[in-house]
């Protein structure tokens, strides 16, 4: 329930090898599985995810990393919302590489983490979580903006492979 930075940082974390039990206990559910596996997980947790914040972190990449498998008029997050109609799906943490979590400062700049969703209080909570992890939270818009965010990560992956960023790269809006 508590969302203060200190509390989140001092929280006891425990991995539970059961998506239903873990989601039943959770206040916030992070679906940390590839896009192809989301349908199966969503089916399992649908009842216990009711009214909860569900964070979609996946990017629906094709097998050659040169495109997305989702149609242009949807996104992984929107598909997850259809599977969990009574949950508050938020897109977050999809525009960052795993290595960014241990180094959220790159070249002295705090990496931006974009958030999208339809529920104001869920966006606020997700922004606090993003901030606690060390990124700069930027609410980009409603859940349809996930289409752009997922394409942004596709581009970042392609740039990483082209210029060899060693999977330590991120987005930063300079203004």
């Amino acid at each position: 329930m508590r969302k203060s930075k200190a509390t989140i940082l001092s929280a006891n974390l425990e991995a539970i090898d059961c998506s239903v039990e873990a989601s039943w206990e959770a206040d916030i559910i992070i679906v940390a599985v590839p896009f192809e596996a989301e349908k199966d997980v969503a089916r399992k947790i649908q009842e216990v995810a009711n009214q909860k914040i569900v964070i979609s972190i996946s990017n629906p990449l094709n097998s050659t990393y040169d495109g997305l498998v989702t149609a242009p008029d949807t996104s992984a997050a929107e598909e997850l919302q259809k599977l969990l109609p009574n949950a508050k799906v938020v897109k977050a943490f999809n525009t960052t590489f795993a290595a960014d979590f241990s180094s959220p400062l790159i070249d002295g700049k705090q990496v931006d983490a974009f958030i999208a969703g339809n529920d104001e209080s869920a966006l606020q909570t997700a922004a606090e979580l993003v901030s606690t992890v060390g990124f700069n939270p930027l609410v980009a818009g409603d859940l349809t903006v996930s289409r752009t965010l997922e394409n942004m990560q596709l581009l970042l992956i392609q740039l990483n492979m082209k210029y060899n960023y060693n999977w330590l790269a991120g987005w930063k809006i300079l203004h």
Partner: peptide, 24 residues
């Protein structure tokens, strides 16, 4: 009504609410 309900499990000694937080 079911659409608006949140199922929640607490383990023994876990808090639902702590003094100083807003009860939601």
């Amino acid at each position: 009504i079911k659409k608006y309900l949140t199922p929640k499990k607490l383990r023994k000694k876990q808090y639902l609410l702590q003094e100083g937080d807003v009860c939601k």
